[in-house]
């Protein structure tokens, strides 16, 4: 099977230090790829490079078998992807306008924007906040706005960098269930960064463990979690430590 996205010898270095080094990574159409790893492992960097928001120092990115010019991706191409960044950066305007932002950028007719925004606000349980200034939201509310703002674009590829980290548990469970069915229904190719094993278990098909900028293990999620390699094992072990 031909991969939808393929990384070829991607390196990202800053001031002599290698932040990310991925000799090879293929992401297939319709799959959900989980990415786990300790703080500073390079997960967010990987997401930004995959989504062409940040140019790698060296290496090539292929999309549908065609090389994507790093740092100079066509607008048409960029508009097929949506990204939820780790930092929730919400515009200083209403929740409605925030969720509508990407559609307005695409010059979608007003009536259709309204319809779609209302649908997604409902889906994320934030309809009652539509007219509120987004800078007055709680962390979890802001994160839902951030998610709605990306999903409303109905992207071909979705990049999610710890999108549920600020949500309360019941909301998280409900959203992940919804999410899973939406993603499968629309067969949206997804890269999902998370620190939560149960999220990853439930949502992802394959899992990559990242450490010090390198993918130390990649495979079907269940397999990786069941039989992790040496280094991955110690990381996953620490993840399940409890405080007592």
């Amino acid at each position: 099977m031909k991969p939808l996205i393929h990384l070829d010898h991607i390196q990202y270095t800053s001031k002599e230090r290698t932040i990310l080094s991925v000799p090879e990574l293929s992401i297939f159409h319709g799959e959900i790829l989980g990415v786990m790893g300790p703080n500073g492992a390079g997960k967010s960097t990987l997401v930004k490079i995959l989504s062409c928001l940040q140019a790698p120092t060296s290496g090539k990115i292929f999309y549908n078998g065609v090389e994507v010019p790093a740092g100079n991706v066509s607008l048409e191409q960029r508009r097929k992807w949506a990204v939820v960044l780790q930092q929730t950066l919400i515009f200083d305007t209403t929740v409605f306008q925030n969720v509508a932002a990407g559609l307005k950028i695409r010059k979608v007719p007003k009536a259709m924007i309204k319809e779609k925004v209302e649908y997604w606000l409902e889906k994320f349980g934030i309809s009652h906040l539509a007219k509120k200034n987004a800078h007055q939201l709680s962390g979890g509310e802001a994160q839902r706005v951030n998610l709605a703002r990306a999903l409303i674009l109905e992207p071909e590829v979705l990049y999610l960098d710890e999108p549920f980290s600020a949500l309360d548990y019941p909301t998280k469970v409900r959203l992940i269930r919804d999410f899973s069915s939406i993603l499968k229904e629309t067969s949206t190719t997804t890269v999902f960064v998370s620190h939560d094993i149960s999220e990853v278990k439930f949502l992802t098909d394959r899992l990559a463990i990242l450490k010090l900028g390198e993918i130390i293990q990649l495979g079907f999620t269940a397999e990786v979690l069941q039989t992790p390699h040496h280094e991955a094992a110690s990381f996953l072990n620490e993840m399940t430590l409890n405080l007592e």
Binding site: R78, L85, Q87, L89, A101, G102, L153
Partner: peptide
């Protein structure tokens, strides 16, 4: 980066 990611 956020604005770019929205396709602006």
């Amino acid at each position: 980066i956020q604005i770019k990611s929205l396709g602006a």
